Simulated scan of single mutants.
Amino acid sequence: MTEAFKVTTRPKIVVIGGGSGQPVILRGLKQYDTDLTAVITVADDGGSSGTLRDYLNMVPPGDIRNVMAVLSSLPQEIIDIFQYRFRKEDEMLANHALGNLIIAAMAEKERDIFTGVQTLAKVMDVQGHVYPVADEPLVLHATFSDGTTLSGEAEITAAHKRIDSIWVTPQDDSTNEVAQAPSEVINAILNADVIVLGPGSLFTSVLPNLMVPNVAEALKATRAKVVYIANIMTQKGETDDFSDADHLRAINRHVGDNVVDAVIMNTGVVPEDYIDWKKWNEVSHQVTFDPEEVRQEGAVPVLGDLLELRDDGAFHNGDIVAQLIMQIANSPEI
């Protein structure tokens, strides 16, 4: 850690999200002396995670697996085994990641996914806390701008239609109970110094966590600095033509209050001829950069060239984002 980011106390940082963006930020923050907690969406229903979710009635393990892999202090050779994905020719095990199967086994052994994840985190020497946002799989629902609705994260994503609003329900909704986060999740939010939202798919990775009612209430009540990491690219259907401020407005509107205190925004420009649009067919174009509009929404813009160009796509540089998060943690002005 550089002298510029040294803090007198160990900041408690909660990173809420899912998908591929969350591990990138956690990897950057892992370099600092922080008390890290990852709160992870459980509304995914595609791929290996979706198959295990359907067969075993468990929360989807994929995002949990990726976070554990990033925060684990085990040798890389073991992490590579944990992350190994069976080939598509392997019939029954086709496309399953070994770590997903291990998480499923731990959930069954402990008869509770939350306890199973905590036990596995100890075995994997995870540096921080890994909390599924709910003990049960959640179903994501969306209303689109044309008035139609769909249920299921994979179907909503595949529709490529402009989303107006989303909500979540327990997979077993026969009791008419609402989704609830475990007390550990709520206490982490209430006791945090900084809460990080994103980056990731706004309506299918970030907001599903915030639609769990006691999570939304905890966000309103916490004294932590709430930071949103603005996406670099828009997503077809989900956020076409969205600016940084549009993302911010969607978060505040869904939570029911202006909960975001700062927005980390990218100033780097994605070269027009760099993106492989066939490979990254979910992205549309670069998010519009508008710090003044963000200020009008009551949040402080925190600017930086966050761009990392790799694999013919545009991604966040996790190290730079982590530096900015640590600056916010130490700033008396936010």
Rank of each mutant, 00 (worst) to 15 (best):
A4K: 05
T8Q: 14
I13H: 00
G17N: 06
Q22K: 14
V24G: 06
L26Q: 01
Q31A: 13
T37K: 02
V39W: 00
S49R: 02
D54L: 14
M58E: 11
N66Y: 11
V70N: 02
P75T: 09
Q76V: 15
Q83W: 10
N95C: 12
H96K: 15
N100P: 09
L101H: 11
A107F: 02
R111N: 15
T115R: 14
T119P: 01
G128E: 05
D135Y: 13
L138K: 07
G152S: 12
E155G: 13
T169Q: 05
N176G: 13
Q180M: 14
S183D: 12
E184I: 11
A188L: 13
I195S: 00
F203M: 05
F203S: 07
S205F: 07
V206A: 00
L207V: 09
L210E: 01
P213K: 04
N214C: 01
A216P: 08
A216Y: 02
E217Q: 14
T222C: 07
V226G: 02
K236E: 04
D241S: 03
R249I: 13
R249P: 14
V255K: 02
V263S: 05
Y274N: 10
I275R: 01
W277C: 04
K278F: 06
H285N: 04
F289A: 09
V294K: 03
V300Y: 01
L307A: 15
E308C: 12
L309R: 09
D312P: 05
A314G: 06
G318D: 04
D319S: 08
I320A: 00
L324R: 06
Q327Y: 08
A329D: 07
N330L: 15
I334S: 03
